[in-house]
């Protein structure tokens, strides 16, 4: 019985994630398509880094 509920639970989570993927990620993709910019430089693929190491920001996991 426990095994059945575990399996059922996993299926529900998978179904919910499918919906999130198809709708949520799909919508994000739709928006992304219109905002996509190509910024390929003809001479370099380097991105310049900025020295903005604010130490207090390191307390955030983002």
């Amino acid at each position: 019985m426990i095994a059945f509920f575990r399996r059922f639970n996993a299926l529900c989570i998978a179904a919910a994630l499918c919906v999130v993927y198809l709708v949520g990620i799909g919508l994000a993709r739709f928006i992304h398509l219109f905002s996509e910019r190509k910024n390929n430089s003809p001479v370099s693929h380097w991105k310049l880094s900025h020295d903005t190491q604010d130490f207090e920001k390191l307390s955030s996991p983002y």
């Binding site: 499918c18 993927y21 198809l22 990620i25 799909g26 994000a28 993709r29 992304h32």
Partner: peptide, 8 residues
């Protein structure tokens, strides 16, 4: 998002 819908 970028790879949608191929990464389900």
């Amino acid at each position: 998002v970028i790879t949608y819908p191929f990464a389900l």
